[in-house]
Design a protein around this nucleic acid. Structure first.
Lengths: 214, 214
DNA sequence: CGTAAATTTGCGTGACGCGCAAAATGGTTG
DNA sequence: CAACCATTTTGCGCGTCACGCAAATTTACG
């Protein structure tokens, strides 16, 4: 989670101002509400000129969602790293748990993103990226032929299950995010089991059909 | 598909200008590209003052997506109208087919919505509404207890499967939308079958678990 | 008709996104 | 250290936009 890996000063400063803008945007939005945050305010809080803000983000929502967006994109990589001994459903579940494990203390931010229409719309752009990354990892794992629908459908199912769980978690403070997430992805397991690399070909024979007209 | 049901002249005119703005926005965007469409152009094409545009829509993307948005929202109602003799998966599938059956000739519009980031983001607002409507209908059909995750998860799975299919349909002109849609939702059937109102309780016993912490 | 309600319109204001070019800062080489 | 190039920051300006407000226009109804 550290930025300063072995980057030139230039790049570190770039990351720094980007992050400064991001945290300033988030903080201000949480404090006074998105609609009362001006670009100039964020720039001022980040000790940077207003014009510079637009060198990094082209809108306030984008600045706010940036961090969450980067997080979400790692999902594909996480799935790829799961040991091959795990079932498909198991691997995806564990990867999802990994991504969201550290999210608990950002609850207010997540809530704001989900409930504010502008932020929500912005965040959806992230979600499609996540879906595609996940679909790629799944396709790799089950060895899908190109054009196979299964990985994308399954990835989308997992992804939107995560959305549903997040929503519930925000509504009810007593729920344990990870626990409900596990329950939710459990509902999807029957789908994943129909095409698993370990116990494969459990299902009917209509799996590989594609491209034929009605 | 008709507007003039039994509305006062006032309301008919209102609908008329709304539709005029919508079709003008769509037409212009298809002709010259979204980024070259000014609000003033749309207003002019709809024989209305620029200020009036903002009485109906607060952005060009919103105006373009409006019709598709209204369409999508009817999905819940469509599911509710399916005969009770149909299995859950069957009912949802048929409802989805119904909504999209007439969409074929709007392919260019759909393509523009999906490929243009601003329109895409706008359209996602619609999708959540559709998801919720569908989830409600599913919950009703299977008689879910309040707080049950299943309807939302299943609705989200169907909804995003539709998204995936649309995407594929746009990429490859040779695919029959309805056929691929049927194939895709077939992948979800195992999920739906685990909790069906007809053949119910087919699955393991972890269905009703919820609200318990880890 | 005439009056009340709703809709349209024009105008003004504050804000935004971004292209452009000058200034500032970082990196590199002799 | 100094000179030089690359990158980033900054200020400025332009065209656009969303929206509040109040006047003008249109609709509804007695």
């Amino acid at each position: 989670m550290e930025d300063g890996d072995c980057l030139s000063l230039r790049e570190r400063k770039k990351l720094a101002t980007r992050e400064a803008l991001n945290v300033a945007a988030v903080r201000l939005a949480l404090e006074v509400g998105l609609e009362n945050v001006r670009v100039a305010d964020i720039a001022y809080a980040a000790d940077v000129s207003p014009r510079t803000f637009n060198n990094y983000f082209s809108s306030v929502p984008e600045a706010i969602v940036a961090l969450a967006a980067e997080r979400a994109m790692t999902l594909g990589e996480l799935v790829r790293r799961r040991p091959r001994t795990e079932q498909l459903a198991e691997a995806v579940t564990n990867a999802l748990v990994e991504v969201h494990a550290s999210q608990e203390y950002q609850k207010e931010l997540v809530r704001m993103i989900i409930t504010t229409p502008l932020l929500r719309a912005e965040f959806f752009k992230t979600i499609i990226a996540r879906d595609n990354a996940l679909a790629g990892a799944i396709a790799e794992r089950v060895g899908s032929p190109p054009g196979d629908l299964f990985p994308q459908i399954l990835a989308a199912a997992y992804s939107s299950a995560t959305r549903v769980v997040t929503h519930r978690w925000l509504q009810d403070d007593s729920v344990d995010f990870i626990a409900v997430l596990r329950e939710a992805v459990g509902l999807i397991a029957p789908m994943a089991a129909a095409r698993d690399s370990n116990g494969r070909a459990k299902a009917k024979d209509n799996n590989r059909a594609q491209g034929h007209a009605a």
